[in-house]
Amino acid sequence: MSRFNGKRAEFEASGEKINVAILGAGRIAHTMAGTLTQMAEDSLYSSWIHPYAVAARDITRAQAFADQWHFDKAYGSYEELVADPDVDLVYIATPHSLHAEQAILCMKAGKNVLVEKSFTANAGQAREALAVAEETGMLCTEAIWTRYMPSRKLINEVIESGEIGEVKAASANLCYPVSGKARMTDPACAGGALLDVGVYPLNFLDMAVGADHGRTLDHFDTSMVPAETGVDAQNSTTLYYSDGTMAVSTSSMLVSSDRGGYVWGTEGYLVVTNINNPESIDIYDNAHKPVRSIAVPPQLTGYEYEVADAANALLDGKIECEAMPHADTIRIMELMDAIRDRWGLKFPFES
Rank of each mutant, 00 (worst) to 15 (best):
K7L: 12
K7W: 05
S14L: 10
K17D: 02
N19C: 06
G24N: 12
A25Q: 02
G26M: 07
A29E: 08
H30T: 12
H30E: 15
L44W: 10
Y45G: 03
S46E: 10
S46V: 09
S46W: 05
S47G: 07
H50A: 05
T60M: 11
A62T: 13
Q68G: 00
H70F: 07
D72C: 07
Y75V: 07
Y75G: 00
G76Q: 11
S77N: 12
E80F: 11
A83N: 04
D86M: 12
V87D: 04
Y91G: 06
S97R: 09
S97K: 10
L98S: 07
Q102W: 10
M107E: 03
A109T: 06
A109G: 09
K111Y: 11
T120F: 08
G124C: 09
L130C: 10
A131L: 07
A133I: 03
A133Y: 07
G137Q: 05
M138E: 04
M138D: 01
C140L: 08
T141P: 01
W145R: 05
T146W: 06
R147E: 01
I155G: 00
E160Q: 09
E160F: 03
S161I: 03
K168P: 03
A170H: 11
S171W: 10
C175R: 04
C175S: 15
P177H: 12
S179K: 11
S179P: 02
G180F: 11
M184Y: 10
M184R: 04
T185N: 07
D186V: 01
C189K: 01
A190Q: 03
A190C: 13
G191K: 02
G198F: 13
F204D: 07
L205K: 01
L205R: 01
D206M: 15
A208W: 00
G214N: 09
R215A: 15
T216D: 14
T222N: 09
S223W: 14
P226S: 14
P226R: 03
P226Y: 13
P226N: 14
P226I: 06
T237D: 03
Y240R: 14
G244H: 01
G244W: 15
M246D: 06
V255L: 13
D258G: 09
W264Q: 15
T266E: 06
G268R: 02
I275W: 00
N277R: 09
E279P: 03
S280P: 04
D282I: 15
D282Q: 13
N286H: 13
H288Y: 08
P290F: 00
R292K: 15
S293L: 05
P297Q: 07
P298S: 06
T301S: 14
D309V: 03
N312R: 10
A313E: 00
K318M: 04
I319T: 02
I319M: 02
E320T: 06
E322L: 09
A323R: 07
M324A: 03
H326T: 15
H326M: 05
M333A: 15
E334I: 15
L335N: 12
R340D: 02
W343S: 01
G344Q: 05
G344A: 06
P348G: 08
F349S: 07
E350H: 06
S351G: 11
